[in-house]
Design a protein around this nucleic acid. Structure first.
Length: 552
RNA sequence: GUCCCUGUAGCUCAGUCGGACAGAGCAACUGCCUUCUAAGCAGUGGGUCGCGCGUUCGAGUCGCGCCAGGGACGCCA
């Protein structure tokens, strides 16, 4: 990347200056370049002189001058300026900037793809909600974040797999099964009592009615246990199907649906427990089996196997993560969890250490809570209480694109309020449409060009000289860096803000530069620029999982 | 009590390794449609970056201490 090349040339200049005795031989910090926010300061800036001035006992301006004089030529750079109090500012050549348009057109949808990941294998696991109820907004946030992160990592050169961990074993599923038996019997007009800790909510009643409609009273005479097994399976499958449909509404798909139960069908669970035991992290106490995480600096131990002999969710999860690293051999694993799982992070990492897996290979992103409001009043979202505004209701109200954008534009760390009234009201005046409109405008330019049978393939991009044209190209040149930053930080929210800036640059260009005009040469040149812009707008929208409409 | 996240313009929020005057959208106000979509453009007003101390040539960004809001501390997941 150009940025890195500039940095290394700057570093060499500093080293040379030291060797020639122009700068005292102080140790140099890592040399970095940044984009100044003020365009008058050039395209790239380096503040190294300010950083070493004190140690060198030399004025930062003099250091900057010495470095600037010794810099090896960079073909892309036009001017190098030294600015007070000690910055080195570099400006790209206009001729080079324009030339990049040809490159962008040539690369098409691949423009901006980088090789950061070097083909290493990353798994992104997200959503993974217990299939015991419909998805709500909080789940939607994880779904949007995870799917976009996967897209970004893929663009950054990683081999990405998207996974949903299906909790088809364990206590919650049992509770779901037993609750369903009661609802089923009630739907038939038979006595049936929902267990005290059972699932409430209309969706359970609907589910039972659906099963009755399909299977009638076939399960009425079975023992409760047997009914729970058979009904449970049917209900489970239906819930999973409903979740898949909700996710499809958001445009989210998975490569793998991993079954928790499968960990117990082979020896993976036992192997994991015996490995922990071997490594000395198992303790038997109070009739239960514990993970001795306090030996790894945790504040307390955690139960792996209950005194009734059943494994906890934590035990399953350790076996599951061992499977990710040891069986399927992912280089990196990224889990996206809700804020209610934050306490689980350190012990999961400790478990990785206990298994001899470098805990840094497991990266866990916690998404903070979403509170749903309607006209300023909070709507509680609890699966157990049954008072739910479901994800698909929200998507139906505000639309998939707005929903995705809303989630993406906020960092995972900040809790957010989603006001349905507000989202609907602003739906015609928000950045979503601003970005999509830029794409639609570009499309309309091509419709006119096609009508006039303009072949712009021989367009001469050196004719692009307007301020707005150069600003637009510069913005497009930032894209690969945005992918890099977003991939490195695992923060997709760089993308929506970039998309908005890109749209602004295009709208400005559109306003000032008539594309299809009487000037044939300029028309062809500008059509090339619009081609590159439209492709990139579409790509950013697609990375965010949003539509790129040809017309609005 | 311990731990995690947050506190930036009236509202919702950005602000990659500390850098050159603190940004966007919405809301408010003023202009701009005979030409490729005005879901747009140009402009105005609006901020003690929760508070204090510290580190630094330089702090919204780092450290410590407070204050406020949310969350987690189960043989639930």
């Amino acid at each position: 990347m150009l940025k890195d090349r500039i940095a290394s040339v700057l570093k060499q200049a500093a080293v040379d200056a030291q060797q020639q005795g122009l700068i005292p031989p102080v140790t140099l910090p890592e040399v970095t370049v940044e984009h100044p926010q003020n365009p008058a300061h050039g395209d790239y800036a380096c503040s190294l002189p300010l950083k070493i001035a004190r140690a060198a006992r030399m004025s930062p301006m003099d250091i900057a001058k010495a470095m600037a004089n010794l810099m090896a030529p960079i073909p892309e750079i036009g001017t190098i300026d030294v600015a007070a109090p000690g910055f080195i500012n570099l400006t790209l050549k206009n001729s080079w900037i324009k030339q990049q348009v040809e490159l962008m057109i040539e690369m098409g949808d691949d423009y901006g793809s980088i090789s950061l990941g070097q083909g290493s294998r990353v798994q992104v696991e997200f959503v993974s909600v217990n299939p015991t109820g419909p998805l709500h907004m909080g789940h939607g946030r994880g779904a949007v974040l995870g799917s976009t992160m996967a897209s970004i990592l893929s663009a950054a050169g990683y081999q990405v797999e998207r996974e949903y961990y299906l909790n088809d074993a364990g206590v919650q599923i049992d509770v779901f099964r037993h609750s369903l038996v009661a609802y089923y019997r009630q739907a038939l007009g038979l006595p049936g009592e929902v267990p005290p800790d059972g699932y409430l909510g209309d969706y359970m009643i609907d589910l039972a009615r659906e099963i009755v409609a399909e299977y009638s009273d076939r399960f009425a005479d079975l023992s409760h246990e047997e009914a729970a097994i058979q009904l449970g399976q049917i209900g489970f499958d239906k819930m999973v199907e409903a979740i898949k449909q909700d996710l499809a509404l958001l445009g989210v798909e998975f490569d793998t649906w991993f079954s928790e139960k499968s960990l117990y069908q082979g020896s993976q669970y036992e192997d994991t427990m015996s490995l922990l035991n071997q490594n000395g992290y198992i303790a038997e106490r109070e009739g239960a089996t514990w993970f001795a995480s306090s030996a790894l600096g945790e504040d307390k131990d955690n139960v792996l196997i209950r005194s009734n002999g059943t494994p906890t969710y934590f035990a399953s999860d350790i076996a599951y993560h061992r499977n990710k690293f040891c069986e399927r051999r992912f280089d990196r694993v990224i889990d996206i969890w809700g804020a209610d799982h934050q306490g689980h992070v350190p012990r999961m990492k400790a478990a990785m250490s206990a298994l001899g897996i470098d805990p840094d290979r497991l990266e866990i992103i916690i998404t903070q809570m979403v509170t749903l409001k309607r006209g300023g009043e909070e709507v509680r979202i609890s699966k157990r209480s049954g008072d739910i505004v479901t994800l698909n209701e929200v998507i139906a109200e505000v639309g998939r694109d707005a929903c995705r954008y809303f989630f993406l534009a906020r960092s995972a760390d900040s809790q957010m309020e989603f006001d349905l009234e507000l989202a609907k009201k602003q739906s015609t005046e928000n950045p979503v449409y601003y970005i999509q409109y830029a794409h639609a405008r570009a499309a309309s330019i091509f419709r006119l060009a096609e009508e006039k049978c303009i072949d712009y393939s021989s367009g001469d991009i050196t004719l692009l000289t307007a301020e707005q044209e150069l600003v637009l190209i510069r913005k497009m040149l930032e894209f690969p860096e945005i992918i890099e930053v977003a991939a490195n930080s695992l923060e997709p929210n760089f993308l929506p803000y970039y998309a908005q800036d890109l749209a602004t640059a295009f709208h400005n260009f559109y306003e000032k530069c008539r594309v299809v005009s009487g000037d044939e040469g300029l028309t062809m040149a500008r059509l090339k620029l619009v081609r590159a812009t439209k492709t990139l707008l579409a790509r950013t929208l697609r990375l965010m999982g949003m539509a790129a409409p040809e017309k609005m």
